[in-house]
Design a protein around this nucleic acid. Sequence first.
DNA 1: CATGCTGATGATAGCGCAATCATTACGCTT
DNA 2: AAGCGTAATGATTGCGCTATCATCAGCATG
Lengths: 357, 357
Amino acid sequence: MLAKNNSQVQILPMRTAKKRSSDKKITLVDVADASGVSAITVSRVINQPEKVSESLRIQVQKAIDSLGYIPNQHASSLASSKSRVIGVAIPSLSNIVFTEVLRGIYEVMGAAGYKVLLVDTHYSPLEEEKMVRTLLSQSPEGLIITGGDQTKACQNFLHKARIPIVQIMELLADPIDMNVGFAHGRAGFDVVKHLLGQGYERIGFIGARMDPRVQQRMQGYKLALEQVGKFEKNYIVTTPEPSSIGVGGELFKSLMASTNGVVDAVFCVNDDLALGALFEAQRMNIRVPQDMAICGFNDIEAAEYVNPSLTSVSVGRYEMGVKASEMIIRVLNEKPIESKKVDMGYEIKKRASTSRL
Amino acid sequence: MLAKNNSQVQILPMRTAKKRSSDKKITLVDVADASGVSAITVSRVINQPEKVSESLRIQVQKAIDSLGYIPNQHASSLASSKSRVIGVAIPSLSNIVFTEVLRGIYEVMGAAGYKVLLVDTHYSPLEEEKMVRTLLSQSPEGLIITGGDQTKACQNFLHKARIPIVQIMELLADPIDMNVGFAHGRAGFDVVKHLLGQGYERIGFIGARMDPRVQQRMQGYKLALEQVGKFEKNYIVTTPEPSSIGVGGELFKSLMASTNGVVDAVFCVNDDLALGALFEAQRMNIRVPQDMAICGFNDIEAAEYVNPSLTSVSVGRYEMGVKASEMIIRVLNEKPIESKKVDMGYEIKKRASTSRL
DNA sequence: CATGCTGATGATAGCGCAATCATTACGCTT
DNA sequence: AAGCGTAATGATTGCGCTATCATCAGCATG
């Protein structure tokens, strides 16, 4: 306690004054007063405790606890230009795919002491630009954004930001900085190969909310069928609305109607649609997989347990979030990363819904 | 470089100097220099454009755009003590229930110009306390937290924060500030009543990750059965692990085994478990609903479309997020709110899986 | 023409903290 | 015993912005 420095007395009248008004926000200086040290020492106790002698540290910590002091992160960030914030932009909160990626991000970032500021771009590059501005105004130390569909202005901001940035979900030819994803086009291609291999011949396609990644899957689908001369334009049914089980059922019905039921397999761009198609097929008394193969994408948990179990493409969503986060953290810690581009791969989980053999 | 300041000349060499080194962060002063106005005017253009003449406003805006200026939110927050941040604490990112609530929160908060800082407490009050400290250190203008299970210390922080706080998901006897939720116990009670009404007699219970809300549902279940003298302790099977479709199947098997298959209905505390139970029942050739009723909770989309369709309890998750956000915004705008406590209610969606009549 | 008012703009100070550079005390070396 | 290094602590300054108050021009009023 007590620790004078000037000449005269000037003991400690401020202290009691502050404490009285339990309203006023407690600051570092209040803690310093209360524990008889300088403000900077309190700061050290919080940020670099090893630099403070044990006795002082305990004394200060006691004051912090008893006053219920909570540091003002804005002041800290301003003074140190370190925000401990990572910005994350995803196109949709309700899509389970992104939720899982987020889990990975939160896991790693949380453990490393970073806060995550999350924004939702609603699948719109313009919205994304606005949101990225918002993120950047928080001086994030790193950024994770989805895909490569940024506006020109947005790309400018991002380049100027000079912080580690990872674009996730898809593999990009020309990433802004780092990139973690997998090859959607190839995955779509491989799905069709698998279906063909199982003896299905007239393979339809069901898609909703046709974002760039879904488009790529469709291109892969198309390419594979063209290669064997089995591509039919009217086997494709899509809608711009968000995908859901209900929409999957509708699209399946409409595919059946528009093709007079000749289609014997459907590749659905995600598992929601696939489940919807499967449930609808059951209601229509179409036997899966005997009369109809159904393949989804993402391999959500239900795919494995539904009857018949649903073939789907497993992608490491959680792992993608983890990987992206780890890369950013490594860069921030100035450790080397193996590569700026990481292909997470995928795996077709072959299950009952496409197994005619 | 050049950059004078002493007495003499010092016209405007700083400006050019700044621009050249495209690295340096652009600040308000840079924009002010570039557009020949004072810093405070630039600040007004951004925050209160109506207070600046149109000519100046355009001129300044041009400078902002050409320099790619992005305001530093930390400095702004520090100076104005307004962060435009709302803190949100949820127990789990992967639980669809919270995802939907989040959607509602983001929708409303985003439109109102607030950023959402989201933390995951992993169902742990201690973790929650730490996370709430993190949130408070960002000087949020409002807080949305889950449930009423805070530690003493955490409650202290929250009370001292003097910002609008909404506790969501469940109805609390003694909320910290505001409260939006529904009566889980009553919902559990009503589910059992429904099952009894359908002629089921030996009603089992399957639960995972027994958080306070799940416990309440179980209490309701127990109460309803006790009232009619049909409660059997060994009809309850639970696990502390997170719930999932797979776990639902396992628990269903274990319930069947431990009761020698006498149970003729199962109340599952959420739809994942219920789907798992349903799929497992199908595999065991137990007919639903003839031999076995299955009821879930939350009414996720799959419940409506699975075959047979799944009875579940619909709760306005999205709406709960919206409501909580609106309440906070009203308080921040000093508008009156109807009540500090809002019961969102619930509705039992009676579907095929419990319809023996 | 003095007065007061309004709207537009600027100068100054300070938000709460940490970077930076002192300062001090206490050893240890030669 | 002088010199030096080191560990612990403090004083000062400034991060980028906005609150506050001041200034000033333009204009209407009586």
